[in-house]
């Protein structure tokens, strides 16, 4: 049992983290909270990749001598790309939030729906 926990606990915590982020994205009404949630979700996925790259007794994948054990470098490289993608998405989302706040005067999902509905009732859609 202890072995099992030692073997997997990292992945379990990563999954808990992912789900926290995912929950924030789909459940919170505030748009900024959604973006925070997306960030948490994505970063946890990155942690998942990094976790799987770790090798017992390995060192960072920078070659000094070849007899050493090294961690798997490929997930690191993939995650560098993914981090960049994440920050780009965040930037675009924030720009959208600013414009939404300007147009609707609110950042809450419900507030936006109400505002839209008001406009719809006025018959201007």
């Amino acid at each position: 049992m202890v072995e099992l926990i030692l073997a997997k606990y990292n992945y379990w915590i990563v999954i808990i983290l992912m789900m926290l982020g995912f929950y924030a994205v789909i459940a919170r009404g505030n748009l900024i909270k959604k973006i925070i949630g997306i960030n948490l979700f994505q970063i946890s996925v990155f942690l998942f990749y990094i976790t799987m790259a770790k090798v017992k007794g390995g060192t960072a994948p920078i070659l000094w001598d070849k007899s050493q054990v090294y961690d798997n470098p490929l997930p690191h490289c993939l995650m560098l790309t993914a981090i960049v993608v994440g920050v780009s998405t965040t930037a675009v989302a924030l720009a959208l939030i600013i414009k939404i706040h300007k147009a609707f005067g609110t950042m809450e999902e419900d507030g936006i729906i109400i505002e839209q509905q008001r406009e719809y009732i006025k018959g201007r859609v």
Binding site: A91, A95, I98, H101, K102, F104, G105
Partner: peptide, 18 residues
């Protein structure tokens, strides 16, 4: 660019427009 565009002061907000 991202910083300049995001952090710029608004010249017109929803309230002021209203």
């Amino acid at each position: 660019t991202l910083f300049f565009e995001t952090a710029r002061k608004d010249d017109e907000t929803f309230e002021s427009k209203k």
